[in-house]
């Protein structure tokens, strides 16, 4: 039987799933525990277009059949969709409110934060985690971050965000402990922004 040559090539996932996901998780946990610091991933993976290495590694580490993923227009290429479907077995949803993870490859036109699920009053942990691919983690306008995990203050320069992002982020503190959590990703580097962090632009 002939193979279907038109099918998109499926890239492999981690070479060593057990230890690669463990190492990536520790980096993710450090990023959430120490918000604003830039963490390089020490594991690599062949990422499907247009996803960054770190975004792909994050999905391989955390997503599975229990976590619906929402992809924005740019992220939802056939290649990315079939990759996530095959390797993570994660359902892909068009409903932002039911997504546990949201992959955003085009931050300038990203949906508003409150379009995603902020969790429930009694279960604020059931919220969406945003995975936002940005052009740079250092060369954007700097903002001062305060809060748990930050010793005094830290000033990352996340590039490519829409103008409304930081005012809206601080508005979300009104509904804390509900809210969304964010990973900013650029290539194989990432920065965590959990909901308890306050930002002064």
């Amino acid at each position: 039987m002939k193979r279907d040559l038109a099918a998109p090539e499926l890239r492999p996932a981690f070479a060593d799933p057990v230890f690669d996901t463990q190492a990536v998780f520790r980096t993710l946990m450090s990023a959430v525990a120490y918000p604003g610091r830039i963490f390089p991933l020490d594991r690599s993976v062949s990422a499907p277009h247009p996803l960054d290495v770190a975004a792909t590694a994050l999905c391989l580490t955390l997503a599975d059949f229990e976590t619906p993923i929402w992809l924005d227009g740019r992220a939802s290429s056939d290649e990315a969709r079939s990759y996530l479907r095959f390797h993570c077995e994660a359902p892909q949803t068009t409903d932002k409110k039911s997504a546990r993870f949201a992959l955003i490859a085009d931050p300038s036109s990203m949906p508003h934060l409150m379009d995603f699920h902020p969790g429930d009053v009694e279960f604020p942990d059931r919220s969406t985690t945003l995975i936002v691919q940005v052009p740079s983690l250092t060369e954007g306008p700097t903002a001062s971050w305060f809060g748990p995990g930050i010793n005094q203050v830290i000033k990352p320069g996340i590039a490519g965000l829409p103008d409304w992002f930081w005012p809206e982020w601080n508005l979300c503190s009104e509904i804390y402990p509900m809210g969304v959590d964010v990973f900013f990703i650029s290539g194989d580097m990432l920065v965590g922004l959990p909901r308890a962090v306050r930002v002064e632009v």
């Binding site: 996901t21 946990m29 959430v32 546990r100 604020p124 942990d125 909901r195």
Partner: peptide, 14 residues
């Protein structure tokens, strides 16, 4: 492990 890891990240976020 994946389920517990997701839980840990939410726990650190709140």
């Amino acid at each position: 492990k994946r389920m517990i890891r997701r839980t840990l990240l939410k726990a650190l976020s709140i």
